[in-house]
Design a protein around this nucleic acid. Structure first.
Lengths: 190, 190
DNA sequence: CCCGTCAGTCAACACTTGTTGGCAAACAGG
DNA sequence: CCTGTTTGCCAACAAGTGTTGACTGACGGG
């Protein structure tokens, strides 16, 4: 019904914007370059998304799509989560765009905060021994997952970028598991 | 001996540059704003540092100053390292500037890679059971430390930003310890 | 067929950016 | 004192930015 003729153009702009924002960050991704990628005029971007921030907001819509965790053995939550995160990072560069922008822009930073607090928080609340600790536990998981993504996809630190997915899960899984369900004083056996 | 009259100006520029780069990132920190902070003319920046990249390179000189670890019980290496990182991060905003810039600029990214590979690598080589694993272990430590800094100082995720230093060490210490000396299959007791 | 709406193009705006060269004042050595 | 060098400021440039508005066709319902 409400399929306007311009929907294809809108989608092309959005796709190009996501790519450019992910690759170059917010300030270095210019409206002109995005428009060129989408093969349209820069003024169309303004018409459909108002301004550059509006375009970014539209391009950075994102859902972590965290698994239910209901059918997962509680002890495997860490590994499952890490695997899911990796898959989510690699299949879609929205998170990459979001991260690159959030480092210098307050808006995207708030968006990331909302995503991790709003989507990871409830999951932590269900798994944590003490629900009051849920925010801190979710935050700790965020540090490890975002740090891994930063080193692997942004900074491209060779040893981290070269890790196979299984290895990454094997290394990070227990960490995330401890952040979610472990005791503060629980040390791993060295 | 070779103390030129302009050394004070040079230092003022460098200090202002570090602050601005740390607060705004590479592209949003303009030469004009840096010069204004240092109360000099923008053209002086060019005279003394060539161009914006040269200024950043000079402002981003950094040494992790990792402790010797010779006198530390091997089992405490993780906690000591985490504590040291936090202190290093809070006392000097060079690392912050470096991180904010590295997300969109290749030069700073390479600098960070060099810092972590060149300074953390040898330490990992001394502590790891198998020296061949040192690069990966150093990389994993980097993911956790950079991720924590990202969430705490850049994104300011409330639960992470609000953590006391002791709590941070208590949570991250065992993680770093396992990355340095732990077995790949060693799971923490849940 | 005709006319209002929509999609798209073009040129230009106001502004900021990094960067440059010229010029005046302060200094230092003879 | 005078001359060459240093230190600094001023004005300007060229390029690139986000953004705007006017104009041109192409649809599509009556």
């Amino acid at each position: 019904m409400t399929t306007r003729r311009s929907d294809a153009t809108r989608a092309a702009i959005l796709a190009a914007a996501r790519e450019r924002f992910a690759a170059d960050g917010f300030e270095r991704a210019t409206i002109r370059s995005i428009a060129a990628d989408a093969r349209i005029d820069p003024s169309m971007v303004m018409r459909y998304y108002g301004n550059k921030e509006g375009l970014f907001a539209a391009a950075a819509e994102f859902d972590l799509r965290l698994p239910d965790m209901a059918e997962v053995t509680p002890g495997q939550a860490g590994s499952v989560l890490v695997g899911h995160f990796l898959q989510r990072w690699e299949g879609d560069d929205t998170l990459l765009a979001l991260l690159r922008a959030a480092v210098t822009q307050e808006g995207p930073a708030e968006r990331i905060r909302a995503i991790f607090a709003g989507q990871l928080g409830p999951l932590a609340a269900r798994l944590a021994p003490d629900p009051a600790q849920a925010p801190v536990r979710a935050g700790l998981v965020a540090t490890q997952m975002l740090g891994f993504a930063l080193c692997r996809y942004v900074l491209r630190l060779p040893p981290v970028a070269g890790l196979e997915r299984d290895e990454a899960v094997a290394w990070l899984g227990p960490t995330v598991q401890r952040y979610l369900t472990g005791d503060l004083r629980a040390l791993p056996r060295s």
